[in-house]
Design a protein around this nucleic acid. Sequence first.
DNA 1: TCTGAAGGCGCC
DNA 2: AAAGGGCGCCTTCAGA
Length: 558
Amino acid sequence: MFIVLSRINHEIRATRLDSNGVVQEQRPVEDFVAFVTENEPGHPRWVWNDTAEWYPQLLKARVRVQRCFDLRLCHTILRNSALSASSAIALAPAGPWDALAPNVVSPSEASPRVEPSTLFEIDAPGFDDGGDSLDATAEFELQRAAVANSTGSGRLLRLLAAESAGALIAAEMRFAGLPWSAEAHDRILTDLLGPRPTMESARPSKVQDLVDEIRELLDAPQLNPESPSDLLRALNVAGIQTNSTRAWELKQLRHPVISPLLHYKKLARLLTANGWNWLDSWVHDGRFRPDYVPGGVVTGRWATSGGGALQLPHLIRGAVIPDPGWKLVVADASQLEPRILAAMSADRGMVEAGSSGDLYEGIVASGAVETRAHAKLAMLGAMYGATTGESGRLMPKLARAYPRAIQLVEDAARAGERGEIVSTQLGRSSPRGEDTGTYDESLTPAERAALRERGRSWGRFTRNFIVQGTAAEWALCWMASIRSRLVSLGEGKWLTESPHLVFFLHDEVVVHAPEELAETVAALIDDAAHEAGRLLFGELPVTFPLTVAIVDRYDDAK
DNA sequence: TCTGAAGGCGCC
DNA sequence: AAAGGGCGCCTTCAGA
């Protein structure tokens, strides 16, 4: 059963449909929270334009839903997917559903957002944003038709369900927040940087000491090491041969200033990205609530907006501390992307190499390359499209040992160069590129070279797209499975009073759990990984091993 | 004074 | 160590 919720001219309307999509009832809804509360026990699939607009209000009222369809996210998938290319949705000209942008929240706003006024906010010019242009019931009907007529035996439907579950999880994780100790954070900062300066403009003492030392060593008393051009000039004047100030390039050089300079860069980065200002803006009441953006990346990965949640430096993960009596269960999928490639290509040899635990060791054991480091480098090269360097040199060895796996990514790259689209396991398709394989006579040799390079670059994108995108699908299925298992384990307890997801990082999750349930949670996360593998790859004997740790600080994991 | 690009670096 | 994919966010800097 489905219940579509739509908001038209500030009125909320509910449309109930049976599993065949036949409308059973349609009525206005006075009190939306009460309506959902009343109907959720039947576990309908709630259908709405945007989870981020509806669900936070429910969570605030301590109401969870089990299942939904997020029409905005699903629309994007269906419009682009090769599996639904002949649907009305894909063939229609761009409309208001294409122009919907994810909501954003200002850094100072700590509580979950409730912004009904943004419901009809249209990003592109020229659209009539009258309420009826976003008829959720009509859109749902179009989406159902697109799925029903799609090729690929249910893959798209699985993708839409996983994507929508992700939207629910993102809202719940933001609501619950990542347990964060401001005291521990401050200790880490004070340790590394010195005490917080009382004046906003002043540098912390240890940073200032390094600046003084660098200025002294370069004989540049006014130097601002934060300015690349300023710094480059000072380095050159001091006789240091370099034309960039990137850390890894500086590492190659030998000069007394290099060490303090690298140290300075490390600390300055910590200070500006995750220092006290960040703490003030993003941590409230012992929780970090980043703004997750499901589907924010073309490959299907999540993005975040504000807070930089997906870039939390390892340096400050010691500030992530569970509540008293609770634990963090940290799980990450080992070598996820290469395993995804092995499974997608059904390359028996590579699947076999991964079956005993360490995929890279398995590749060495097969005799393809000499060392684990080489195996890793070669795999990264295959997935990213390395052409030169060590990685590029190792690739042919990999291609000989695992022809099917390598062929899959090579084909994806060639398709991209021709301007064709490529698709993930469940049917998320890449944007269309330009055909760079044929060019007309009028181009100069330089223009042709530039065109070829654009093509190769797009080919590297499509090559990576199928692997990164399928890994993202695996992760969504994994999390959705974890979530529903946690719901069962919670036995009706409220979200934050039973084990719940608090963080997600591409191939890693963190669950906040009462100590006595931590082991159970660890086991359930493992079961969910197996389920995700089956959802994507059926009974193919591919394994997705996890590293699971039960810890009192995030940085105690691995 | 504001804005967007560039350089740089954090994460996967 | 260092060439390839995807991001967000900080500072500086040039141009309007």
